[in-house]
Amino acid sequence: MSEAVAIQRPAVALPWRFVRLLPGIALLFAIGYAGKLAETLVKDYGKAHHLALPNIEYVLWAILIGLVISNTAGVAQIFRPGIATYDFWLKAGIVLLGARFLLGDVLKLGGVSLGLVVIEIGVAIAIMTVLGRWFKLKPKLTSLLAVGSSICGVSAIIAAKGAIEADDDDAAFAIAAILALGAFGLFAYPAIGHFLHMSEHAFGVWAGLAVDNTAEAAAAGAIYSDTAGKVAVLTKSTRNAMIGFVVLAYAVYWASKGQAKTVQGKAAFLWQKFPKFVLGFLFVSLLATFQTFDKAQIASLANLSRWAFLLTFAGVGLKTDFREIRRQGARPFVVGALAELTVTAVTLGLVLAAAAIFNL
């Protein structure tokens, strides 16, 4: 059966597969660019009329426009394949961002982040598991929410879904909940950061630790400042690199209960789950460390990374569907929200302590 499909595919399918992405990518670009224009327009209007308007970054505009479209008119089928590429733009953007980091900074910040990440993962899993039991959620949904909240939202949930053989419904809900909670965080975290007068580095580390979806972590950081966005991506990538270990632990746990396949070849499993874009990021950072690029070239690579993120942020809004949450009911969402709140508070404490010790 699969061979017949494979034989039919190549001649027609490949160009068509690219063509069907175009409407969605064009929509991502249009929304992202509208966000960029909105930021400039508000700024110019404030200047011209001597008004102290809040500086709303293009990131937030793009996400808001996307949110409004997806939760009101909805997204037409023709745009969906292209919108799904937002994850591709995110990863390409992260690799390009490597040009703005020297490897020494990556190791220093990555080292501090790694210590905090390990604590954050332990805390998030423990809280989610306890809350899941209290609220009597389905055990596999609790596992998905725990993986999503401890590591990296959507990709972690998808990775875990296959490994622990969870239902599609549970995974769709866990993804919707993580995205919706992250969207709320985009408004709350920068406000808290400003209230506590956090440094750009400290805020970036916090956003990278506390916001679950990589695109939203990058967005939360970028809303605070450019540097905070950069640091948030680095911290979040460190967290993402741990995905294999956590998913493997859950896979082994569910296999021991006879409810998932036993994992054969644990090293291969870890490599399969390892986010390869982290390697790309480190490679470009290595090139930058050896001064492969001049100033203008670094600026161009940084701008390419911004354009890629612009498409990503538009996609985040378009992919967040609050209606999915209504479908599963409020209880799992409340569990997710309670866990997120605790993780937010714990990571904030960790980051403030680390900022004092390591002078972030």
């Binding site: 994850d87 591709f88 995110l90 990863k91 390409a92 953007g93 690799v95 390009l96 040009a99 986010p275 390869k276 874009f277 390697l279 790309g280 490679f283 470009v284 090139l287 492969t292 690029f293 203008a296 070239q297 161009s300 690579l301 701008n303 390419l304 911004r306 354009w307």
Partner: peptide, 30 residues
């Protein structure tokens, strides 16, 4: 041939852009 994952495609696309910026001085504004 084994299918490449999205991660690898993102790395390849980004590295292709890096090569363009480095070799033909592709200039990108914001």
């Amino acid at each position: 041939m084994k299918k490449l994952s999205l991660d690898w495609w993102a790395v390849i696309a980004a590295l292709a852009l890096v090569v363009l910026v480095k070799t033909v001085n592709l200039s990108v504004g914001w």
